[in-house]
Computed example of a mutant assay.
Amino acid sequence: MSFYEDLAAALDAEGIESRVNDETLFVPISSGVEIQFDVTNELLPAANIYIAAAPESCDGGTGPDADEEEFEAVLVSAVFSVDAAVDAVLDHMATDAIVDLVDELVTDPDGRFGDLQFTAVEGEPITVRSPAAENSELDIVIDIVDGEPTATVTLTTFDPDLEALLDDQLDGTDGPVDDETVAELIGCFLAEGLILPEQTMGLGTYTEFGRLLTVMPFIAEHVADWEEELTSTADDYDVLFGDSRDGDTEDDDDDIEDFDLDGDDEDGPAPQG
């Protein structure tokens, strides 16, 4: 059997469609993107891999029998076995699915996510985040687990006093404040018992991204209720964390001390890590 025949059989075993046309094997990985294999040595074997925009055929679908001169294929790698070729297809399909999911979450083209407004957060794995309800954040962390793209959704609720305390401490600060400074302040607040620890709630892990997008409108509708319940649970501070929170900080705004983030103020507590 030829390399293409072996590869087509291996892809078929994975449930992946492929076609051969003009000595090139085409593998559609989404409605607009395809992988192309070009064998450079049949005996070795060796094949170049190209990524290209899938051309639109006359019936509105995609396929290798459309006008190939209307798009440009880009060489991305080479493989030297059928197994490596299949792995490359699976990796590209996973990457394409992640890109599509992030785009869907950030743009919300159908307006299904209510007040949630996701933005991408730099880092590894990929994360998109949205403010939620009054004092919460909704994180969707996307990674490849055992070769399969996976999204994990978590709601994190913060103490309602946190924003006011941060505003008070950072009032008059010139220029942007980095995340490290904010984290140090939060550590100080926690050490002094001024705020409650954040509360988290898992909202599922998804390998079927279509299912996640179906669930998202329900999540958007219920985040306020979940925040209220999480905050109510955290407010029972004596039971959960011991009695180290003294009084109502809203009544003591004028008495809040300035925390020394440089660690050289003898009168103020050093930041907590």
Rank of each mutant, 00 (worst) to 15 (best):
T156V: 14
S136D: 00
E134L: 14
V177L: 07
E180H: 00
S136M: 02
D167K: 11
T181E: 09
E134W: 04
V182I: 15
I142N: 13
V145E: 14
E192T: 07
L165V: 03
D179S: 12
D143M: 06
D171C: 05
L155W: 10
L165R: 12
T156M: 12
G202C: 00
T200L: 00
N135E: 00
A183H: 09
P160R: 11
E163G: 13
A183S: 12
S130H: 02
D161L: 08
G147L: 01
M201I: 04
E134N: 14
P160C: 14
L138C: 09
V177Y: 06
P160K: 09
L185C: 00
E134H: 14
V153F: 03
L155A: 13
T181F: 01
I195G: 07
S130A: 15
A164I: 07
D146Q: 06
T150H: 07
D143I: 11
L170G: 07
G202E: 04
V145R: 15
F158V: 08
D171A: 12
D167M: 08
L185Q: 01
Q169E: 06
V177T: 08
A133Y: 02
V145F: 08
L138K: 11
P160F: 11
I142E: 06
L185F: 01
T150S: 13
L138G: 11
T157D: 01
S136N: 02
F158C: 06
L170N: 12
Q169R: 08
L138Y: 09
D143F: 02
D178N: 11
T173P: 01
E198K: 15
P176W: 04
P197A: 13
I142L: 08
L194I: 04
I140R: 01
L138V: 13
D167F: 07
E148Y: 05
F158Q: 10
T156W: 01
F189E: 06
D167H: 06
P176Y: 12
T150D: 09
P176L: 06
L196W: 04
L190Y: 13
T200W: 01
T173A: 12
C188I: 10
V177W: 07
T156N: 04
G202S: 09
